[in-house]
Design a protein around this nucleic acid. Structure first.
Length: 589
RNA sequence: GGUCCCGUGGUGAAGUCAGGAGUUCACGCCGGCCUGUCAAGCCGGAGGUCGCGGGUUCAAAUCCCGUCGGGACCGCCA
């Protein structure tokens, strides 16, 4: 069946070309623009999802913006000198038009053209059905559909089976805050919406599925961001009898298909970096490797320093080449404030200048507290040259990396750019991200079913310091500083699982209570398995050069979680509450 | 939980720092003119509780407090 012709139309607006000249066509669409020249002539730009074509109405036309019309006419050459190269259809026009109004329309509340991105986003969202008519949004929706399609064929081709897992599941206290749904049939009980299909996909492995995937909607009740919505979509996958390499290869295959479908290019070999390197050099577990400004280790230079602020377990620096001239003092003060908000005790900045004797000197409020050797060391280690600005932070390793990592982004992060894609696997995540000072227990970096590195298993019985050295078989996919997704090899050995639960302070009773169904399943023969999930909203946004995933979601929510179109979230009828056995607390003021 | 920015006819902006008549610009809208335009053009017109509430002041879009809405970020997101 043709994708163009229907009962009401023979062609789509954007597909008319000189090849069609002479054909009598019927087009349907919206009046994008009209140029009326009195009662004798009018130009109507007719728009559908494929584009715009100019229709010439002799005798004028009483149409308004966004009227839905059916225009029947003849495709013809544009007269000499009136070809419009800005339009794909600009070589032709539709003449001898009969116009039938299918729906009249009120004037749109905002311009549906290239000016729309400047419009208050609330207004766009309140009238999202109008926003979606725009080229850019049509492109985004269709690219997203193409991505889903590419993912499905890539996963199908690799032997993965698409399985739908439930949306109404039991809440587990780990991870993000759950969205919760009251259970009418069991008052006082609640379902939760899945943060991910994690446990179900592992059950699929026990169920002999071998390779599972799902384009899965996930829900997390945490604060929203440019790259985070309450509900988002992941490619979720799991493989049996597989290790990390198998998973990376399979996911790379899917991402490669996506990149090819969207850009025509190929993914190529995705570089890898250990988590420790990522933190050490970029101050982030999702480093944006499109630009330099790497963190430079300086700790040893200050082993015997007299400067109290630098008597710290870790000191690192960042060099911002050539930034001295256009970085004002007030900007430096702002950066210092930011660094403090990010958790630093302070931020040391140094302007690199050329001294009278030609030597490189550091101009900084703290320079007088540092020895010549220390200053020389900074210059040498950072490779500082006159005109540069250098920033130093002293604290423990985590804090230094974190603050300089954020500073690095603040100083030099390039805008989203679809033509400059730096994919990166971050591997060897630690099993535990920290040790809780109050309880002395390690805090898991991933979920508690993450398999440690085989050679680090012995450290599980060691000191807290040794525990923090345990690497896990967990890995993230990063693109231009956005975490696209993560995965791990799962624990399938009951002894290892018991030990990890024990370390985390999860008693056998707790474990049974929370994940009993999974542990039970594992008792009946669990294959070694590993998996991954990546966020499709984020991937599509970055591939399209969008700074915000709302641009690739048909009906997204605002930062406060509202939908200006439907008014969600909304109060519900007291009768509904009654039926659910719920009563509202008085609002706190 | 926190930091910062924004809110002015339907839309986008200027005006706010430094208080003085709802002032201005562009688009859109309505009417008129117009036979080759393409963000058509020309002429005329309508349209605003300056988000909301309170305070200061002779006087508030402008200053102060609060609040609502939007955005970016930190925390949070196993």
């Amino acid at each position: 069946m043709s994708t163009s012709s229907t009962a009401l139309r023979t062609h789509l607006c954007g597909e008319l070309r000189p090849d069609h000249i002479g054909e009598r066509v019927a087009l349907c669409g919206w009046v994008a623009r009209r140029r009326e020249h009195g009662e004798h002539l009018a130009f109507i730009d007719l728009r559908d999802h494929t584009g715009i074509v100019q229709c010439v109405v002799d005798g004028g036309a009483d149409l308004r913006s966004e009227f839905v019309v059916r225009i029947t006419g003849t495709v013809r050459h544009r007269p000499e000198g009136t070809v419009n190269d800005a339009l794909a259809t600009g070589g032709v026009e539709v003449g001898e038009c009969d116009v039938e109004v299918l729906s009249a329309a009120e004037p749109p509340p905002f311009p549906l053209d290239e000016r729309a991105p400047d419009v208050d986003e609330t207004i766009r969202l309140r009238h999202r059905y109008l926003d979606l008519r725009r080229d850019e949004m049509q492109r985004n929706l269709r690219t997203r559909a193409k991505v889903n399609s590419a993912i499905r064929s890539a996963m199908d081709g690799q032997g993965f089976v698409e399985i739908e897992t439930p949306m109404l599941i039991a809440s587990t206290p780990e991870g993000a805050r759950d969205f919760v749904v009251p259970a009418r049939t069991r008052p006082g009980s609640f379902y939760a919406l899945p943060q991910s299909p994690q446990l179900f996909k592992q059950l699929c492995m026990v169920g002999g599925v071998d390779r599972y995937y799902q384009i899965a909607r996930c829900f997390r009740d945490e604060d929203l961001r440019a790259d985070r919505q309450f509900e988002f979509t992941q490619l979720d996958a799991e493989m049996s009898f597989a290790d990390q390499e198998d998973v990376l290869a399979a996911i790379s295959g899917a991402v490669d298909s996506v990149v090819e479908a969207v850009t025509g290019g190929r993914l190529g070999d995705v570089p890898r970096m250990t988590w420790h390197d990522a933190m050490d050099r970029y101050g982030s577990d999702k480093p944006d490797t499109r630009f330099g400004l790497e963190l430079v280790e300086l700790t040893d230079l200050f082993a015997a320093t007299g400067f109290n602020a630098f008597k710290a377990p870790c000191i690192k620096g960042v060099r911002h080449p050539g930034a001295a001239a256009d970085t004002t003092r007030s900007r430096l003060d702002d950066l210092t404030d930011s660094a403090k908000r990010w958790g630093a005790k302070g931020l040391v900045w140094m302007r690199v200048e050329q001294g009278d004797d030609g030597a490189t000197v550091l101009n900084s409020p703290v320079a007088k507290f540092l020895s010549p050797e220390e200053l020389d060391g900074i210059v040498t280690r950072l490779g500082a040259e006159p005109g540069d600005l250098c920033y130093l932070v002293a604290d423990d390793w985590h804090a230094v990396c974190h603050v300089l990592g954020l500073l690095r982004l603040e100083l030099a992060r390039p805008p989203v750019d679809a033509s400059d894609l730096h994919f990166l696997w971050v591997v060897d995540f630690p099993l535990f991200e920290s040790v809780d000072e109050a309880t002395g227990r390690p805090v898991p970096a991933h979920h508690p079913f993450t398999m440690p590195h085989a050679e680090d298993l012995g450290l599980l019985d060691g000191s807290p310091e040794q525990l923090l050295k345990v690497r896990s078989q967990a890995y993230d996919l990063v693109l231009n500083g956005w975490e696209l997704g993560s995965g791990s090899v799962r624990v399938h050995d009951p002894a290892v699982q018991r030990r990890i639960f024990e370390l985390l302070g999860i008693s056998p009773e707790d474990a049974q209570e929370r994940f009993g169904f999974l542990l039970d399943a594992f008792r009946f023969g669990a294959p070694p398995h590993a998996g991954f999930a990546f966020g499709i909203d984020r991937l599509v946004a970055l591939l399209l050069g969008e700074e915000n995933i709302r641009e690739v979601i048909a009906f997204p929510k605002t930062q406060s979680g509202g939908d200006p179109l439907t008014g969600a979230p909304a109060e519900i009828d007291p009768a509904q509450l009654e039926e659910l056995g719920l009563r509202l607390l008085p609002r706190s003021t």
